[in-house]
């Protein structure tokens, strides 16, 4: 069956829009940028990081990816800069900085 939801934008006509607003395949909000909501930005200090992964569990925005049981750098596209990660880190391995820095 045809996949639904890609390429939908404000120009879509009633004939083209997906039936009942159905969207297939999940996870399409990845295309939506929420990083521009951010006032301050978490910076990963890898040298301090013990890979405890608490930060990634506490991120509301799925912005701290894990690969092979280790966190990698932030995905800033969706990070809203809440600062929870800095606060939960037991090892001072995350630092919030102003966006302009």
């Amino acid at each position: 069956m045809r996949q639904l939801g890609d390429g939908i934008n404000a120009k879509v006509t009633w004939k083209e829009i997906t039936l009942a607003g159905i969207v297939t395949d999940g996870g399409k909000s990845k295309d939506f940028e929420t990083g521009d909501w951010r006032n301050s930005k978490p910076v990963w200090l890898a040298e301090n990081c013990k890979q405890c992964l608490i930060c990634t569990a506490f991120c509301p925005d799925s912005s701290i990816p894990v690969k092979d049981k280790k966190r990698v750098d932030f995905e800033y596209k969706h990070c809203k800069g809440c600062g929870i990660c800095e606060k939960v880190c037991p090892f001072n391995a995350i630092e919030m900085k102003g966006e302009e820095e």
Partner: peptide, 9 residues
Amino acid sequence: LKVAMGPYD
């Protein structure tokens, strides 16, 4: 084919 139904429109 996973589907999502009933969006905020």
